[in-house]
Amino acid sequence: MNKILIVDDEPNILLSLEYLFKKEGFTVYIARDGEEAMEIIDVDLPEIVILDIMMPKVDGYEVCKYIKEKNEAVKVVFLTAKSKIQDIEKGLETGADLYLTKPFTNKDLITKVRNLIN
């Protein structure tokens, strides 16, 4: 069972992702902002984190750095509405393994996340 952490401040998006990954057999943790995400990471390190960027309190970049500092092996996927090329570059520079933009196709998202793990 792969542990996945999903971080997003939009409840409905969170809900849809939780549903998708649970169905795929993941152990799903959710967090509604960066702070919450970091708390979870401190307690139980997931294999993969799906991360929004624009969130209250602590933004996605901070969380990504935090994770990579803690454990380089944890895969980080940015899933964000920010789709400008500068945003993508910045996201990858921060250490993310994958940068995906909203809105997404469910199948596509799952496939890419799976590929990342294997």
Partner: peptide, 25 residues
Amino acid sequence: ISTVTHEMKTPITSIRAFSEILLEE
């Protein structure tokens, strides 16, 4: 504009995700 489009993407993302779920399952 960039903010507006960003703001639009949020509901669209949800709509799309759930629509797909409803369709496929």
